[in-house]
Design a protein around this nucleic acid. Sequence first.
DNA 1: TCTTTGTACTTGCAAATTGCAAGTAAATAT
DNA 2: ATATTTACTTGCAATTTGCAAGTACAAAGA
Lengths: 138, 138
Amino acid sequence: MKELKQRSTCPVSTSLDVLGDKWTLLILRDMVFADKSTYGQFLQSAEKIATNVLVDRLAVLESHGILTKVVASDKKSKFTYSLTEKGIDTIPIIVELILWGTKHWPTVINPVLLKELQAEKDTAIQKYQRLARQKASV
Amino acid sequence: MKELKQRSTCPVSTSLDVLGDKWTLLILRDMVFADKSTYGQFLQSAEKIATNVLVDRLAVLESHGILTKVVASDKKSKFTYSLTEKGIDTIPIIVELILWGTKHWPTVINPVLLKELQAEKDTAIQKYQRLARQKASV
DNA sequence: TCTTTGTACTTGCAAATTGCAAGTAAATAT
DNA sequence: ATATTTACTTGCAATTTGCAAGTACAAAGA
């Protein structure tokens, strides 16, 4: 159980103490928008996270109650990671990163998703939060 | 002029290539919500950024067109950093970090600002973006 | 004019983190 | 019985960070 060392009491600073690196939010992105839930699936993403970094980030996220780790329903040798409500609440952050990235950098994204986020952001966020809750309750 | 190395074409990944560390968004937070605009002011923040890290992040942000650096109007030996539109567009990200932090961690924040963000998020974002534009145009 | 202060860095170095390659271990499939 | 899948662990080099100190130049004060 890793404890959080807050650099200050500022909420931005504290959020960055948890999420402020190049990998953590990519794991959450994969869970929300790519339906990934296992160690092996996270490893396969385009950004090629190193195995030790992935293990570390999953442990930190679990220790902070952002996701949970349970034995998979199909295999005993497999674990499934699910978002908690605290994790589901990061979806608005990820959405804003999507919108800023697509607006200001050369990126590639599912155009249906992009239009959904641009036209009805709050509705789309609620939809993906609902979907995440469904996945988590299986 | 530092070039951006994108780990992938995903907009989340690319946004994190730029903003994904513990310090960059704190500088932007200080510019938007604490009216800071000089090297010395950034150094004084509660999180105590190291001087070499601050210099590096300011240079990266400038090279990516997120902020501009100009000689201050009052002193020739002083520089003023201002947000560009690309920088102003990060305000929704910062706001979501504020909301996630205040909801899930022990933090301290101006209650007026928090209520403003919770009750009328979009309106408040527009307000702070407008204020940032005013500062930048002085 | 000389000194001090303010502002913005630069430098050196130890510590921590990351990235990469390889190896391990238990459960499952053949 | 053997091979494969899944989830790690380990070792090590390279990079990044954090800390302390020093530099450079403009402005203000004596």
